[in-house]
């Protein structure tokens, strides 16, 4: 599993950094004895080399320590947060549909517009959305059994409706009357072949805004 290997790596990095640090400290003790002027320079150089690594290892240690709590938090609240977010998007959608008088987004190419068009231009919006690791665990279990995976579908549907809503809001800001030829792209943040990395999906929506003449 993903997170288990993460934790193993965290622990090894922490252990190695402690080892390296102690070796450096003992080496300094040996070097310090013969000459008195050198230590500050040696310390400076060693500090420059080692400090970033120590900070990096520390960050991983913090990450490893925080992981169980975050995981639990995600398990308890991610579903509810998702639902809240979906409901908020529905409300915003209603508001913008009221503003335009209809849903401004369409995949039509514009031949249906009767009066002619005054101005047009590109509108785009994007959002990066991630399922929680709890959901990924459920998906892993689902994969054993096979069949539909509703939980991921829910996350991606939420991200998509939010991207579309952002597009509507952008169109509203820029004063377009309608958005034609809308396309929705989905891209992974991490290639499927990579073992680690953010397991997130990017939804990108774009279209051509037009202003009636």
């Amino acid at each position: 599993m993903d997170y288990r290997s993460n934790r193993v790596r965290t622990l090894t990095i922490a252990l190695l950094s402690v080892l390296a640090f102690s070796v450096v400290v003992s080496a300094q003790g040996v070097v310090e004895e013969p000459q008195k002027e050198d230590p500050p320079l040696v310390l400076f150089v060693v500090g420059c080399c080692v400090l970033p690594w120590i900070l990096f290892a520390l960050a991983w240690v913090v990450f490893g320590a925080a992981y169980p709590f975050m995981f639990l938090f995600g398990a308890l609240f991610s579903g509810r947060n998702l639902e809240r977010r979906v409901n908020a998007v529905v409300l915003r959608e209603q508001a913008s549909i009221e503003h335009f008088g209809k849903d401004p987004l369409s995949t039509l190419k514009g031949s249906h517009i009767v009066g002619g068009v005054n101005n047009s231009g590109l509108v785009y919006s994007s959002i990066v959305y991630a399922p929680s690791h709890w959901m990924l665990l459920i998906v892993w279990f689902n994969n054993l059994i096979g069949g539909r995976i509703n939980i991921l579908q829910k996350v991606i549907a939420a991200a998509r409706s939010e991207a579309k809503q952002l597009l509507r809001e952008r169109a509203m800001e820029e004063g377009w009357d309608e958005v034609l030829n809308v396309r929705i792209d989905t891209a992974e943040m991490t290639p499927a072949s990579a073992k680690n990395g953010p397991r997130a999906v990017e939804i990108f929506a774009y279209g051509t805004g037009v202003k009636y003449g």
Binding site: S126, A130, P131, M189, E202
Partner: peptide, 17 residues
Amino acid sequence: ALRNIMGGELVKYTELL
């Protein structure tokens, strides 16, 4: 990465893209 554990929007990545 911490945000990813809990799920939801990754705002910084959205901005970056």
